[in-house]
Deep mutational scan, measured.
Amino acid sequence: MDVFMKGLSKAKEGVVAAAEKTKQGVAEAAGKTKEGVLYVGSKTKEGVVHGVATVAEKTKEQVTNVGGAVVTGVTAVAQKTVEGAGSIAAATGFVKKDQLGKNEEGAPQEGILEDMPVDPDNEAYEMPSEEGYQDYEPEA
């Protein structure tokens, strides 16, 4: 019985440690998101679009440190934060509304985080759909 109880105690310690790591990862992701939003706020009209992409990228980098179902929630929060940063930029006159959601080359930025393969159960990952990809044929 002692062996059984000791095993359960060790398992509990492992769960607590994993929860603490997840909590730490979420806190880091939130900190990076805040950094990115402050970065966007300090940019001029020309830099705002690039700044919004930076927020998304920093958040995406930190999301990889967070495991399990938390990833889905962090990704949703990050996307809403990026959308909010863009709205703030438009409201303050840093950028025109028609410039939001495009990178410096004018290509749409939507789907940055949505296409990231995420499995809350950590069982399997699927690649994003290939609808947006084109076949590449090298020139002879």
Rank of each mutant, 00 (worst) to 15 (best):
G106I: 11
E137R: 12
G111M: 15
G68M: 15
G25Y: 14
N103G: 06
A107H: 11
E57R: 04
P128Y: 02
E105Q: 14
I112N: 08
A11I: 15
G106V: 05
Y39M: 07
V49P: 02
E61Q: 08
K21D: 00
P117Y: 04
L8K: 00
M5C: 01
M1R: 00
A53Q: 08
V55H: 01
G14N: 06
Y133L: 11
M1H: 00
A107Y: 09
P128D: 10
N103R: 08
K10C: 02
A124T: 02
E123S: 11
Q24D: 06
F4N: 00
E139Q: 04
F94L: 08
A69Q: 10
G36R: 13
V55K: 04
Y136G: 06
T64W: 08
L113W: 12
V16R: 09
V70N: 01
P117V: 11
A91F: 13
V118F: 07
V16T: 07
V16W: 11
V70P: 01
Y125C: 08
G7N: 10
L8A: 01
A76T: 13
E123L: 10
E83Y: 03
K10T: 04
Y125T: 07
T33G: 03
A78Y: 15
Q109A: 02
F94D: 03
G31F: 15
K96D: 10
T64E: 06
N122Q: 08
E28I: 05
A17K: 09
S42F: 13
K10G: 01
A78G: 06
G36A: 09
K12G: 02
T75Q: 13
M116H: 11
Y39L: 07
E105A: 07
K80R: 07
I112F: 05
G93D: 05
E20V: 03
S87E: 13
G106L: 05
T81Q: 02
A53K: 15
K45Y: 04
G41I: 06
V74Q: 01
P120W: 06
M116T: 15
E61R: 05
V37Q: 00
E110Y: 07
M127I: 08
L113V: 15
E114D: 15
G111K: 09
K45E: 00
E83P: 04
A29W: 15
A53G: 06
G25C: 09
N103P: 10
E13P: 01
A69W: 14
G73N: 13
A69T: 07
D98R: 07
E105F: 07
Q109C: 07
K12I: 03
L113S: 11
V70F: 03
